[in-house]
Write a protein that binds this DNA or RNA. Structure first.
Lengths: 305, 305
DNA sequence: CTGTTAGCGCGTTCAC
DNA sequence: GTGAACGCGCTAACAG
């Protein structure tokens, strides 16, 4: 085929806006150029950010992204037409068992976990432990000693991520020779408020509060505001996520760069799908403290009269 | 085929976790059971909500969702492998020309616009005009007269949605016999702050501010807080979107239920794809004022000495 | 290096 | 009613 013929063909293809059918080519190559992403919901800021980064990275690699929102873990794999329909599966923030992963891998090829980890499975996640440990030390360095940790806990226990965050706080407190003070409430919009309610009813409330997530911190902030407790005047408040609301509320927090998480995952998946050997199949990304105006040195103790 | 054989086949399929290849079936039927969604980005709360609702509705209809994030309008259609790869196209918040729509429809089948509208094209959007008109009346009813509108404007002009919002404000003000007062800044995080800066430098600042979106209101709120202007004490502030931050900041706003927008779009697309006649191909959804604590009656004018 | 052909997995049709 | 054969659009392997 001469170059000029090539050009004519190209021009014709352009003219008719021809595009190869990945449907048909996938049929013969066995590769669909599609990656299935399973996520609890697209609505929360964190998930949306991860999937956004993922989408950009996959697009760069020439892969399309199928997004599935699945609430219940049990039936998710049955409702998904996976076999022959995607080259890989990305599970965002899903606590899967090894069996579920194996089953999924059997049907959908490589499985990559985001925000969770499972021994032997490819995963991308942040260093939750270091995040809360660093956050706790930030508060310690400001001079706080009575630092409470507020978080969510379902009846079924805590996710790996939640556990790691709690442990980071515990470790930093213990290292400093201080007693950890943990309050957990059931997840949901009222979580932070309820936790603050409990803390404020204590005879000697904390001078600083570290929340498991910005969402929890948000509720806490509202409860403190409504109770007339100045932040950071009386209580310093710190979140975890760097949610949009955090900058809105000038909330000190821990940036976990979810979009980067997604982007790194995308590159990893592309390597896996396209037969390249990824340098590392289990990536842990660092986090970063973002100091803002909701944390300050504790008010001097009023000397008793 | 006897029923018992059917059952045995079903059992075997279950056992081997067999799933029909939409790839192959699409090849022969011409239907891919896939819908392409094009959205500027998944990160902003509004887009994530729309796509989330869309995903749920499509899933119910047995359709998979391909998500494409595209920033630049010009090349978006070339980068997307559309032909034979999706049954329909949903464009979220993209200002398309009729030519682009026609081209897209030629390649991807039915095109549905969300958050925008184009004569003759299927679209789902909210009543922006009624939203800002209602919001303005809310402020008028509280007793405000000097009500400013702040929004964003690029060099290229305003989107239909922005224009509709501005017009709603204009109309309500004119109806009340008051002079509209509009301040627009270039979009971005600094938009609200800059607008408030301009308003506060006026010799007689407004007593109420209506923002084009919660994002703008957010910046405005921050600027007011930093300037020590009490909200709603000195200035009432109102947003538009019912973003998460709005409830966090107790901001009065206009709920536009983006997830419902997505869900309605999903049903419409499913009807179109599956050959049903949709009842209406151009849906306008109502909005609702959400009163919170950032709006109140204006402070009594201090009588001059 | 170019042109031809088989067959990927499935739905439809046509013959039985 | 059941079953076989064709072809959807494409790629890979092979023959010229």
């Amino acid at each position: 085929m001469t170059p000029e013929v090539r050009d004519k063909v190209r021009a014709a293809a352009e003219e008719l806006s021809y595009a190869v059918s990945r449907n048909a080519s996938g049929l013969v190559t066995g590769r669909t150029c599609r990656v299935a992403v399973v996520v609890p919901s697209l609505r929360p800021w964190y998930f949306a950010s991860v999937v956004s980064g993922l989408g950009h990275a996959l697009h760069e690699a020439g892969l399309d992204m199928l997004v599935h929102q699945v609430g219940h873990l049990e039936d998710w794999i049955h409702t998904l037409p996976l076999r022959h329909n995607s080259d890989a599966l990305v599970a965002v923030a899903l606590e899967l068992t090894e069996e579920q992963c194996a089953h999924a891998a059997d049907m959908a090829g490589p499985v990559v976990l985001v925000g969770e980890r499972l021994p032997g499975r490819a995963s991308v996640h942040i260093d939750d432990h270091a995040g809360t440990a660093g956050a706790t030390r930030h508060l310690l360095n400001l001079g706080h000693a009575r630092i409470a940790y507020i978080g969510s806990r379902t009846d079924g226990g805590m996710s790996l991520s939640s556990t790691a965050r709690l442990n980071g706080y515990h470790e930093a407190m213990t290292e400093a020779g201080l007693e950890p003070w943990t309050v957990t409430k059931s997840p949901g919009p009222g979580c932070g408020e309820l936790a603050v309610g409990e803390l404020l009813s204590h005879q000697s409330p904390p001078t600083a509060v570290l929340a498991e997530s910005d969402n929890v911190a948000l509720g806490a902030h509202r409860a403190l505001r409504r109770s007339g407790v100045p932040v950071p005047g009386a209580i310093s408040l710190m979140g975890f996520d760097d949610h949009d609301v955090s900058s809105a509320l000038d909330l000190t927090t821990v940036d976990q760069a979810p979009q980067t998480l997604g982007r790194v995952t995308g590159h990893l998946v592309a390597d896996l799908v396209q037969g390249r050997r990824p340098s590392d199949t289990c990536v842990e990304l660092p986090v970063q403290i973002v100091p803002r105006q909701s944390t300050a040195a504790p008010r001097k103790r009023r000397t008793s009269p």
